[in-house]
Design a protein around this nucleic acid. Sequence first.
DNA 1: CCGGATCCGTTTCGATACTG
DNA 2: CAGTATCGAAACGGATCCGG
Lengths: 159, 159
Amino acid sequence: MRGKVKSRRRSGCPVSLSLEILGDRWSLLVIRDLMVRGFRTFKEFEESDEGIATNILSDRLRRLETNGIIIAETEKTDRRRGSYRLTEKGIDLAPVLLDLLIWGARHEESLAPPALMVQMEKNREGVIAEARKRWRERDSTPLIPSFADDGAGRSSKRR
Amino acid sequence: MRGKVKSRRRSGCPVSLSLEILGDRWSLLVIRDLMVRGFRTFKEFEESDEGIATNILSDRLRRLETNGIIIAETEKTDRRRGSYRLTEKGIDLAPVLLDLLIWGARHEESLAPPALMVQMEKNREGVIAEARKRWRERDSTPLIPSFADDGAGRSSKRR
DNA sequence: CCGGATCCGTTTCGATACTG
DNA sequence: CAGTATCGAAACGGATCCGG
């Protein structure tokens, strides 16, 4: 039992700190779903994506909350946390998410219609502004409709 | 030995795919060091940061390589891979990294001089263009000098 | 039913020793 | 110097259970 903890040094670059919060498989995915797909409840997160386990989801939500990226709203009648929203700090991640989305669309298998991406890339600032606006208005309709549904992305899943 | 793979469904959003590559504690950090700090050798990565273990570093470098984000250059005289560089796909992550850097500087403990960040935020496009330019010229001097050294970031680390 | 918490087997991580 | 090998520790993921 080598109890050497080795006193983790941390570099001064802010990215490292960010990655201590966001550097895992699920956190950014949860934030994306909040921001882009308009998810708000535990169940929505659980059922979507690639099937995050409930314990992991619970843990990630709590971690994001303690880091001030989301807030959980508890109803008075019920002790459970019913819905989640991004804080301003959280919505400020919109540029990161968007750039990642753009990068993914350009370099990974382009499951999402490139046309949409090209447009989004051109209108980056506009999309970010829209995200921020909706956050202020507590409007949680999906920011990018094609990503709203589950097997999503493949062209016109029109309704 | 329950061979149930459960046929992981993946959502159509490109972000998920990106996060399968980048969604861990170290990958983006390695990319940042490649891009912003100008690291190129195994040893530089190993000694910097918050002390990544050599086996993890080795694994991440390999994964980034197989995903086409970096390339390893092997010298003919030696079987070892001597230096690493970003591919074009890798350099295209500059916007993501930069936005993450900006976000971190704004919301996390501001270890980096805010002035630098404000400037970088204003000149986002310029910094990205510079990164791309250097990549083309194989110029690996640090893109952001304050982040070049280890305990870095704290204002005027006089030189 | 919904939002979790708990239990438990499996996978990944991380520190260090070791090798070409 | 650039990695592997090893092994204990931590995180993950699935199933199940529980309180509101």
